[in-house]
């Protein structure tokens, strides 16, 4: 699994209660706003964090979300990185969970992850049954 050093991150959020979902959403929104993302991208980032937090709360009961600002790629584009990890049950079929279809009619894990992937520029997931799940997503800031 991914090794995390909390000191490398600007924001560390513990997800334990249902209300932490709304808190993490708000924190992500404020941070993205400070990074000068467009309003649409701020909303996408906040929504993605909301989904990640909910997955943690619902499936692993508790876990952490780490957020940081960095520069990525040859162009050193300002980028937000979000890492969500837990020691929950893990996902058996990661591919299936990530490739959710265009529906909202089920309370499935699939839509959350598939939706997050569509909202962000990069998406990486590691999961091991019985050990936990880590999701890393990034979004680059576009010019104007």
């Amino acid at each position: 699994m991914i090794e995390v050093n909390p000191q490398d991150y600007d924001i560390v959020l513990k997800i334990k209660d249902e209300s932490d979902i709304a808190v993490s959403r708000q924190m992500a929104k404020n941070f993205a706003q400070k990074m000068n993302f467009s309003l649409a991208d701020v909303t996408k980032i906040a929504t993605a964090v909301s989904e990640l937090a909910r997955n943690i709360y619902r499936y692993a009961k508790e876990g952490y979300i780490y957020i940081r600002k960095k520069e990525a790629g040859p162009e050193k584009a300002t980028t937000i990185e979000i890492l969500a990890c837990d020691r929950g049950p893990g996902i058996e079929n990661v591919e299936l969970a990530v490739s959710g279809g265009y529906t909202t009619s089920e309370r499935s894990l699939g839509l959350g992850l598939a939706g997050i992937r569509r909202l962000m520029d990069s998406f990486h997931i590691e999961s091991e049954v019985g050990k936990g799940t880590a999701v890393i997503v990034e979004k680059r800031r576009r010019a104007f």
Binding site: S38, A40, R142
Partner: peptide, 9 residues
């Protein structure tokens, strides 16, 4: 993708 997103916004 860049232009499409700016335009959509």
């Amino acid at each position: 993708s860049h232009r499409a997103q700016n335009m959509a916004e």
